[in-house]
């Protein structure tokens, strides 16, 4: 009987622990998002509101969505901090495919502090391209699996294993393509948050 009682108490404690773990507020990348300058020498930005569909997908994740104009061209930049809702951060390839886009080309490209992924996609005769990477201070990478492992470790250690990686997505506006090396040079905030 004693063992059965201990088992029942263990069940209650385990469930309470699981709920506490799930709801523990992790420190995210809000300071890094705030450090992303809106305007500066040679560039100007403008905040863009999320549409209802995006709000539903990102949920409680913090999102910065901004248009920038600089010498390299005009771009739309979306940065997602999933500390409060990791499930708001998706593999961009999966999202594009789900939205009906066909991936026509992919390439590894340089990111400000590492490697990103450039994707060209088409839908209904329309071409589009995005470049994305996951950003940690001093380290950028394009692997969603690595992102999930890093964030899983952060959740397990209640945020003590390192900074929350941010998803950065860059899309050209009004032109088919943008020179990313030139963009990093003429839009310094991309490499400074």
């Amino acid at each position: 009987m004693k063992a059965a009682g201990a088992f029942k108490i263990g069940t209650v404690l385990a469930i309470a622990l699981g709920i506490a773990w799930e709801t523990y507020p992790l420190d995210g990348g809000s300071r890094r998002l705030a450090a992303m300058a809106l305007t500066g020498p040679g560039f100007a930005g403008e905040d863009v509101r999320l549409d209802p569909g995006e709000q539903a997908v990102y949920g409680s994740a913090r999102v910065l969505k901004r248009k920038y104009a600089c010498k390299a061209g005009a771009v739309l930049i979306t940065i997602v901090d999933g500390a409060r809702n990791r499930h708001g951060v998706h593999d961009p390839v999966y999202c594009l495919r789900g939205a009906g886009w066909q991936i026509t080309d992919t390439q590894d490209v340089a990111a400000p502090s590492g490697k990103g992924e450039w994707i060209r996609a088409s839908r209904d005769g329309k071409q589009s391209e995005i470049t994305y990477w996951f950003s940690e201070p001093g380290s950028d990478y394009a692997s969603p699996t690595r992102y999930w492992m890093r964030t899983a470790l952060r959740h397990m250690t209640l945020g003590r294993s390192g900074s929350e990686p941010l998803l950065v997505i860059v899309q050209p506006i009004g032109v088919a393509s943008v020179d990313m090396t030139e963009l990093y040079r003429t839009l310094p905030p991309l490499g400074q948050f």
Binding site: G18, A152, L153, H155, M156
Partner: peptide, 9 residues
């Protein structure tokens, strides 16, 4: 379930 909650996977 506990592992899923702890890792957020």
């Amino acid at each position: 379930a506990l592992s899923g909650a702890a890792t957020s996977v």
